[in-house]
Amino acid sequence: PQPSALTSEQLIERLMEAEPPGIYLMKDMKKPLTEAKVMMSLTNLADKELVHMITWAKKIPGFVELGLLDQVHLLECCWLEVQMVGLIWRSVDHPGKLIFSPDLSLSREEGSCVQGFVEIFDMLLAATSRVRELKLQREEYVCLKAMILLNSNMCLSSSESSSKLLRLLDAVTDALVSAIGKTVLTFRQQYTRLAHLLMLLSHIRHVSNKGMDHLHCMKMKNMVPLYDLLLEMLDAHIMHSS
């Protein structure tokens, strides 16, 4: 069904059902941690997560009705942001740690063995603290993640595709507003909360850009084996940004 035919409750339900499963690394990282071992594990996880992310995107009501190249473009633009918001969500109950997967969590100190990671770790930990303060609800989280995908690029192939995308974004915005409306807040507190949640997204975009540059550097230094899909997604970013 078209997203406009769904009520906000139904849309949220569909977004909840689209949530990807927890992805396990299935390999114990032997101590001491080294730059190569950490990068290897994180890129392996990112590659596995990408496959699930595509399945997730296809389950977002209306996404597959966009042109195929627009779907490609949106996913290429937002994949690291989507992975980062997932990481933040998983880490919210574990102050000082980032939960990359159920079997891989790293503290700031552990992350620091990778050159250039501390800055990115600190930004992710700060964003996680903010999400903790805001007591983000699961319903709000799924809406924000869908928004990241749908808002990742404004340049679509046709004006028809762009207007479809805008209608989709409107439906997700309505769903987010209705999720916020479920909380015991005054109207003023509700729109302040909406603003706070949306402001998180610009931080996530910023960290994602930093992370993308970092991954690109690591690739240039041959520090990581990059898997097919991950490599494709990284190259697309380098191409779009240059």
């Binding site: 595509i54 195929l68 490609v72 996913l75 899909l229 494709e232």
Partner: peptide, 13 residues
Amino acid sequence: HTKLLQLLTTKPE
């Protein structure tokens, strides 16, 4: 974007 296209166009089981 061969792999991405391939994953986007496969029908879910």
